[in-house]
């Protein structure tokens, strides 16, 4: 009974992860400029990686394999925003301007 429930939860997590992975890649193709693609690429990927790796760890049981999966997840969560920041900073300082919806409102102050 317990095994069965764990399997179902693992299935659900992995399928949600697959969905986000494909949506992220689709957004990489559909969105119009570099800045908007960053949202889709790095970021939906992170969610996909989180769901898939947590889903795998349901199948792995509680063992060293689970620890390794969670460690991969931790690395992705620490490195992904750093790489995104580096990319954004590089393209911003190289003078690539984002397409904005209304110029007069931004940058807006809180």
């Amino acid at each position: 009974m317990m095994d069965w429930a764990v399997d179902i939860v693992g299935w659900a997590f992995i399928l949600i992860g697959c969905f986000f992975a494909i949506v992220g890649a689709l957004g990489l193709l559909r969105l119009p400029d570099v800045y908007t693609r960053v949202h889709s690429a790095g970021v939906v990927d992170t969610v996909a990686a989180a769901f898939m790796l947590i889903g795998f760890s349901f199948y792995a049981g509680f063992s060293l394999v689970t620890v390794k999966l969670l460690l991969i997840l931790a690395f992705i969560f620490f490195t992904s925003p750093t790489a995104t920041n580096a990319l954004a900073n590089a393209m911003y300082s190289q003078g690539i301007k984002p397409a904005l919806v209304d110029e007069e409102e931004s940058p807006s102050k809180p």
């Binding site: 992975a21 990489l28 570099v34 990927d45 990686a49 992705i76 992904s80």
Partner: peptide, 16 residues
């Protein structure tokens, strides 16, 4: 930068 972004995303998926 599009290419770097795509390759970075490709790498994350390679891990998966």
């Amino acid at each position: 930068y599009d290419r770097v972004l795509a390759v970075n995303s490709f790498g994350t998926k390679t891990v998966l």
